[in-house]
Design a protein around this nucleic acid. Structure first.
Lengths: 119, 119
DNA sequence: CTTGTATATATAAAAACCTTATATATATTT
DNA sequence: AAATATATATAAGGTTTTTATATATACAAG
């Protein structure tokens, strides 16, 4: 209900890393689950769209970062994605990289870092 | 020197807000100055390219968020950009919006919320 | 029993954005 | 004389994302 503003414009570029990061924490997830997890863990602040998510998942699979496993649950097909060993490394690297970027951006925007005492 | 890795991939979508935010802090700046300010204030972590920056500046001007003023300095033309009143409002809104997004993303990526004890 | 909502994956056209390459021009340093 | 720093700008190309659409089951509401 209420707001679904969802500043998806800022998502550009971070989606791949978000997916990798979630899979690093969860072992295996399916597409729909990923969108729900993001929505819940960000209190609705970030909402992934399927049109963006699935191409990313497919691409990561192509690149060898993910492996899939399809299971039928409640009569519906569920396609689970899990990191490969290579994908786990990529996830680590990209998450650190994005973390650095986020810090840099926060410093730039406002929230100043504690300055070392000026000599 | 050294690294110019510059994870520009994460910049997607945030560029406009970065520019607005800088102009909110500085009254007026020119393109080249903006790229230098970003580089310095982020310790080289974020590097804007001109091919991305100028189109954004022009678009913001078109939208009425910025006004320009050209001055000749040292025989070279310098085009200063400053926020309009409307642009100042946009800058405030977008900066807050991006701040919220960055917080949400940081929660999602790292610092996990305390898990309820698994039964 | 029919409609709507939630669950679930997927693709394709179009738009948006960014990268890379390029052009132009002056001042200063090597 | 050449390289580097300063300074703005555009265009082609590639990638990513949005929006719209298709398919399908389960369950609740009317």
């Amino acid at each position: 209900m209420e707001n679904t503003t969802s500043n998806s414009e800022y998502l550009r570029g971070t989606l791949k890393t978000i997916v990798l990061s979630l899979l690093a924490e969860n072992k295996r997830m399916y597409g729909y689950e990923i969108t729900q997890a993001v929505k819940e863990q960000t209190n609705g602040e970030i909402a992934l769209t399927f049109g963006a998510l699935y191409p990313v998942l497919h691409k990561l699979e192509q690149e060898g970062a993910l492996l899939t496993e399809s299971l039928e649950v409640d009569g519906r097909l569920r396609k689970y994605y899990a990191l490969t060993q290579q994908g786990a490394e990529t996830a680590r690297d990209k998450t650190i990289e994005l973390g650095r970027f986020l810090n840099a951006l926060q410093n730039l925007l406002g929230v100043p870092e504690p300055l070392p005492a000026t000599s």
